[in-house]
């Protein structure tokens, strides 16, 4: 890694991300989890409709 990122006061170690970068990354993680959750709920509902599961 180049020296200028190592000396950047905004970067937090051990990972070397800035707080804003971590926030953006986290936004993607949470958004992904939400999309995934909604799709999983929908799929399980369809499986419930089709199969003898819980009937």
């Amino acid at each position: 890694m180049a020296d200028d990122t190592r000396d950047d006061p905004n970067r937090v170690w051990p990972t070397g991300l800035t707080i804003r970068e971590a926030e953006e990354l986290h936004k993607h993680v949470i958004d992904g989890a939400r999309i995934f959750f909604v799709i999983a709920v929908f799929a399980h509902f369809l499986a419930y409709v089709y199969s003898p599961w819980l009937h």
């Binding site: 937090v12 051990p14 990972t15 991300l17 707080i19 970068e21 971590a22 926030e23 990354l25 986290h26 936004k27 949470i30």
Partner: peptide, 13 residues
């Protein structure tokens, strides 16, 4: 986002 700062401690990779 509340827990965003976890990525300052845990490497995303």
């Amino acid at each position: 986002m509340n827990q965003a700062r976890i990525w300052l401690v845990v490497k995303p990779t």
